[in-house]
Design a protein around this nucleic acid. Structure first.
Length: 305
DNA sequence: AACCTTCCCTGATGGC
DNA sequence: TGCCATCAGGGAAGGT
C-alpha cells in the first residue's frame, strides 16, 4: 500500500535523523525480503554511516559511503525509527497541518525483519507482515547501471516529469489507462489508490484505452497525477490499514479520498453512486457520471469487456 | 511486442 | 466459539 506519497512521507521523516551517526549493530532473520546475503549486508553496514536518503518512485535509497541500501516496502512494509526511550503504547499526536493522528510505535516482533542500530541508541526497523517488500544492496557503481533502476519510469517530482515525454510514452499504446498508470516504467510511484484518484480528478474512465483518450485529456491526467500526489504528501499519506510513517504516525489522506474505497457511496461532485470494478484484477473505483466511458454507454456491468 | 492473468503472502472480516 | 472462505495488491512470471 505504500505508494509515492507514503514513501516520501517516510523519507521526509527520516531525513536528518541519522546522517553521520555510526551503525553499531545490525539484526536480521532469514526472510525472502532480503535480496542480498544477510551476512554481507551486516558486514557492509557495521561501522558505516548513512550519508543521505533519496527516493525513486516507491524505492527508498539509503546512501552509504560505498553502497546504496535500497528498500521497497511492497504492500505492508513499515520503516520506523525506534527510540527506546519512547513508550510503545498507542497514543495520539496533533500534526500541525493534518490534525489528530494516531501513533503506534511497534516493539520489534516476528514481522520485524531488519533492525539497524545506531550509535545514539535509536534503531531503524523494517517490519513487513506480508513480506512483499524487498531489500537490496548495491555498490554505487552497480546502482548506477542496475537493470531495475533503468526500468523505473518518470519520477513525478523530478525535472524529467515532462508533458511531451508523458505524451510520447502514451503513443501507440492500446492498454487500458488504469493498467498503464500502475505500470512503474510509465510513471514511477503511482499505485492503485492514486491511479483511481488521478483518473477521477481527470474525468477519465479507467477502462478507456490510451489510444481513445484525447490529447487534452492526457494533458489533464499528466497534471492531475502530480497534484494528487502532492496533496497526499501534504496529508502525510493514506492509512487504510498498515501504513505508518517513520514515527509510527498514521496518515490522514484517507479522509480526502474521492473514489478509492468509496464504492456504494455518493460521488462528492455529482451524487451518483461510486462503482467498483476489476481491471487486471485490481479493484478500481470511479464515478460513471464524472468519468464517462466515451462512445458507448452501458451500465450494470461489473467488468470491462 | 504488447497486453493480460495468475501467483505469492498474512491478517482482518464475515458467514455459518 | 471456532472454522473456513474471501479479500487486500505490487510486481514477477507465465500465457495469449
Amino acid at each position: 500500500m505504500p505508494e509515492l506519497p507514503e514513501v516520501e512521507t517516510i523519507r521526509l521523516g527520516l531525513t536528518g535523523q541519522f546522517e553521520d551517526i555510526e551503525i553499531v549493530d545490525v539484526e536480521s532473520h532469514s526472510c525472502r525480503v532480503f535480496q542480498v546475503p544477510r551476512d554481507w549486508l551486516r558486514q557492509v553496514l557495521l561501522g558505516d554511516k548513512i550519508q543521505s536518503l533519496d527516493r525513486l518512485g516507491k524505492f527508498l535509497i539509503f546512501r552509504l559511503s560505498e553502497h546504496d541500501l535500497v528498500i521497497h516496502l511492497g504492500m505492508t512494509g513499515q520503516l520506523t525509527l525506534r527510540d527506546p526511550s519512547r513508550c510503545d503504547s498507542p497514543h495520539f499526536f496533533r500534526h500541525p497541518a493534518t490534525g489528530l493522528q494516531r501513533v503506534r510505535q511497534h516493539s520489534p516482533d516476528q514481522h520485524t525483519h531488519l533492525q539497524i542500530h545506531f550509535e545514539n541508541g535509536k534503531s531503524l526497523c523494517y517490519r513487513d507482515i506480508r513480506t512483499f517488500g524487498r531489500i537490496y544492496l548495491f555498490t554505487h557503481e552497480e546502482a548506477r547501471r542496475d537493470r531495475f533502476f533503468s526500468r523505473v519510469g518518470m519520477e513525478p517530482f523530478s525535472e524529467e516529469y515532462l508533458l511531451d515525454v508523458f505524451l510520447d510514452n502514451c503513443r501507440d499504446r492500446k492498454v487500458r489507462i488504469k493498467s498503464l498508470l500502475l505500470d512503474q516504467s510509465f510513471v514511477a510511484g503511482v499505485g492503485n489508490i492514486y491511479a483511481d484518484e488521478s483518473l477521477f480528478v481527470s474525468g477519465i474512465h479507467p477502462c478507456r484505452r490510451i489510444n481513445r483518450i484525447r490529447i487534452f485529456e492526457r494533458e489533464r491526467l499528466f497534471q492531475s497525477i502530480k497534484r494528487v500526489l502532492e496533496k497526499a504528501i501534504k496529508f502525510g499519506g493514506t492509512t487504510l490499514r498498515d501504513y505508518i510513517d517513520s514515527d509510527g504516525r498514521e496518515g490522514s489522506h484517507q479522509e480526502e479520498l474521492r473514489v478509492y474505497g468509496r464504492e456504494g457511496s455518493p460521488c462528492l461532485v455529482c451524487g451518483a453512486e461510486i462503482r467498483k470494478i476489476f481491471i487486471s484484477n485490481r479493484g478500481t473505483h470511479f464515478c460513471e457520471v464524472c468519468q464517462p466511458r466515451a462512445g458507448q454507454k452501458k451500465s450494470g456491468r461489473r467488468r470491462c469487456e
